[in-house]
């Protein structure tokens, strides 16, 4: 079992390596790519939100860095079990190692993006708040949410190979209808208020935005909804995985 856990570590490392093997900028691309993406989005959406660019970039980075981790990890984890046949058809290896490896590889990107986020705060002279000390806990909660969602998707994808575009569309809708992109004030009126109250993504985003941008502690309701989402998704994923794993082999 010890060496099987080593497989998990080596496979995660290899996934990170393979992504950047042959890329002319190598691992530097890991920093440049999210930074360029976020700067461009910041530029566009500061206009949409009629905000000051420097102010909006900090707001956007605070929500988008964890969201990109969630989105990219979900996408990578979705096909992970189905494409693990190269190993699982030949050797005894728990199927959940493959979504876990993808999660690990994406976590590496997330941590690099997180450092980029801190650099952006410095560049745009944003304030450093005491509340930012809570961020490692926020990362853990996002990790839990992502692990649960990714595990569910990886199991479902084995049986329904056409769900990927549906998932991508769903994620895009979730992103553009949440406070990750838009400041709460933009979604005004009663309907907007109700939407912000029932949309769990707003609570997830608050775990980063409140300490970084607003300089306040996330509320208990933010932690509660986010933790409940993570635990709920992980329990659902585990139930799906345990009840369907004996069928995986026949769907490769």
């Amino acid at each position: 079992m010890q060496t099987q856990r080593t497989f998990l570590l080596l496979h995660t490392r290899d996934l990170v390596r393979l992504r950047f093997r042959g890329a002319c900028l190598g691992l530097a691309w890991n920093i440049l790519q999210p930074a360029l993406y976020l700067v461009m989005l910041g530029l566009v959406f500061s206009v949409v939100n009629r905000s000051n660019y420097a102010d909006f970039v900090v707001y956007l980075f605070a929500g988008l860095v964890p969201w990109r981790f969630f989105e990219q990890a979900c996408d990578a984890m979705t096909a992970s079990i189905a494409s693990s046949a190269v190993f699982t058809r030949g050797f005894r290896v728990p199927y959940f190692y493959f979504p876990a490896s993808e999660l690990g590889a994406q976590l590496t990107d997330f941590l690099v993006s997180f450092v980029t986020l801190l650099a952006v705060l410095q560049i745009f002279h944003a304030s450093w708040h005491l509340q930012m000390l809570i961020l490692p806990l926020s990362v853990l909660v996002w990790l839990l949410i992502t692990a649960g969602a990714g595990l569910c998707l990886s199991v479902i994808f084995v049986f329904f190979r056409d769900i990927r575009p549906i998932v991508q569309m769903g994620l895009m809708l979730a992103l553009f209808s949440s406070t990750v992109f838009f400041k709460p004030a933009t979604l005004s009126g009663r309907a907007g208020h109700i939407w912000l109250t029932v949309n769990p993504v707003c609570y997830w985003a608050a775990l980063f935005q409140k300490p970084i941008y607003y300089g306040v502690w996330p509320l208990p309701v933010d932690w509660g909804v986010s933790l409940a989402s993570g635990v709920g998704l992980l329990v659902l994923g585990t139930i799906l995985y345990r009840s369907l794993r004996h069928k995986f082999y026949f769907y490769f």
């Binding site: 099987q4 497989f7 290899d14 093997r21 030949g90 050797f91």
Partner: peptide, 23 residues
């Protein structure tokens, strides 16, 4: 089965070795 096509023979030996009980 067992070897990742994008990885080198050496990397695959290490990876598959762990599945066979080798550190």
């Amino acid at each position: 089965v067992g070897f990742h096509p994008e990885m080198t023979g050496r990397e695959n030996c290490y990876l598959v070795g762990t599945l066979l009980g080798f550190s």
